[in-house]
């Protein structure tokens, strides 16, 4: 966030959009949707040692209503696809999706009758993290990339456009 000093104490000037983005990017609360092996690495990332809390994601929201980032870690089978879609639809805007691991990105080694080949055909994905499973460092890198992405967004512009279209 760019801050311009304006004399005295307790004052600063910034853009509203940057303030919103600053708030959003510093607290990307994840919905840890760990279905397979990647879920264990996700647990390792949340535990001591890697400590995802350093990037503001220390509060796992198991309810999709309170989550900002859907952290999809693991294989999505065809049986699971309606569940994933439903969870994504239940999340409140703004929402982002991280596809963690080869299975979530493309189906990975499991090119079979029961595995869905990549979750991006069900829900939009912002960050892909390759690896089987990715190391915790890779997950943290993905999270940082998502934070940079959030910082560049224009939340008010979207709203203004929507308002203009309505009127």
């Amino acid at each position: 966030m760019k801050i311009q000093g304006y004399g005295g104490n307790g004052w600063f000037i910034t853009k509203m959009e940057q303030l919103i983005n600053w708030g959003r990017s510093r607290s990307p609360w994840p919905l840890p949707y760990g279905t397979a092996c990647c879920g264990i690495e996700l647990m390792a990332t949340m535990a001591s040692g890697y400590d995802i809390a350093r990037f503001g994601a220390e509060r796992p929201s198991f309810s999709p209503r309170q989550a900002d980032v859907l952290l999809e870690a693991g294989t999505i089978t065809k049986k699971m696809t309606p569940v994933l879609k439903r969870i994504y639809d239940q999340m409140a805007e703004p929402k982002w999706v991280i596809a963690m691991g080869a299975c979530a990105c493309t189906g990975g080694v499991f090119r079979t009758y029961s595995t869905h080949q990549g979750i991006d055909s069900i829900i939009p994905v912002d960050i892909y993290i390759p690896g089987c499973p990715p190391r915790p460092e890779a997950l943290l890198d993905g999270l940082v990339k998502l934070i940079h992405k959030i910082e560049k967004e224009h939340p008010l512009r979207k709203q203004a456009q929507a308002l203009l279209q309505e009127s």
Binding site: T35, A36, T77, K79, M80, V83, F110, R111, T112, Y113
Partner: peptide, 11 residues
């Protein structure tokens, strides 16, 4: 069960 049935045996 079956939400993680990935077809390992067939593969």
């Amino acid at each position: 069960i079956g939400y993680l049935h990935r077809g390992v045996e067939k593969l």
